[in-house]
Design a protein around this nucleic acid. Sequence first.
DNA 1: AAAATATGTCAACATGGCTGACATAAATTT
DNA 2: AAATTTATGTCAGCCATGTTGACATATTTT
Lengths: 172, 172
Amino acid sequence: MADRNGGSAKPIKTALSREDGVDLAIIELLFFAYRDFTSDPDKILAEYDFGRAHHRVLHFVNRMPGLTVAELLDVLKITKQSLARVLKQLIDTGHIVQAQGPNDRRQRQLYPSAKGRELALALARPQSSRIHEALKAAAPADRTVIEKFLRAMVNPELRPQIDNLPGDSRGI
Amino acid sequence: MADRNGGSAKPIKTALSREDGVDLAIIELLFFAYRDFTSDPDKILAEYDFGRAHHRVLHFVNRMPGLTVAELLDVLKITKQSLARVLKQLIDTGHIVQAQGPNDRRQRQLYPSAKGRELALALARPQSSRIHEALKAAAPADRTVIEKFLRAMVNPELRPQIDNLPGDSRGI
DNA sequence: AAAATATGTCAACATGGCTGACATAAATTT
DNA sequence: AAATTTATGTCAGCCATGTTGACATATTTT
């Protein structure tokens, strides 16, 4: 009678499906899509003994050259101790260079070197190709739909941060 | 003259932008969207001392009740040693139950218990709500566009696996 | 002069991947 | 019937990347 946890509870044989009022289709598509999306740069990174954490740092330093350590932490939402490990390696290998803040000399501004810019591009290219392939079947207007959806999936308070990244039409 | 790595290379001050022929907009949107998308269940999982790995296992056992260990490994693309750790905990806590394979008695078929089904639903609900919110501004036809795009982002050889999941219109 | 801020660093810990090696039971092949 | 292959489990150790807490230094602000 006692429903002990160790005891074997009754197995449910019916599959969880959309009747349960949950958007399983898009939940799973996001999982599989993101997994494969990140697998492209992972292969390149392995050659450099870098990981996904290095990729993120390198990417945003390339996108916002001169950003401070505090600003980078705010974008990545990780602790400074986590950042320190990978940032040090990127600096030691000459992919990122530091400069003292012009107004506040406590700050460290981060810039990519030519080498760092090249690697960031090499990492972005296969991801971009995958996106380009995925959009081939889509109408031109569909891109807007997809961008709007993905932006709406982000926590509202973080959307301005995305909009302020340079170079594409979102921020304009 | 020597361009030693330790030496400070010249900083690049211009931002990487779409002129570089790379789809930075969608690359970044996927990063931010996925990060926030996974943060919803993470909060619930922490109460159970579970992590994202438990979530994935629990999800697919609920979606494909009776699947074998080998089939689960093929969906998740992890090693059996990685799976073993989290699967054992889910069995010990009574979220998943095992049954001997009916034809091949070496196999272990995995089923959710009522408890496991409830937790899977509780984890899916906030993700589903986020998706629902994000689709509010979209036209009904836009859902198809988004699903097609995400499906096309998945490696081609894995798409049949997604299509064969039960309960939604993709597989039909 | 004192307090707050930006950054760096040391130490310890958790999660969730990985590889390699080996054990068992059951099915398949010879 | 014996040998081999297969499905699963398990032990041990390694690595990457996140965490918390504590403390040091330089610089700016009050």
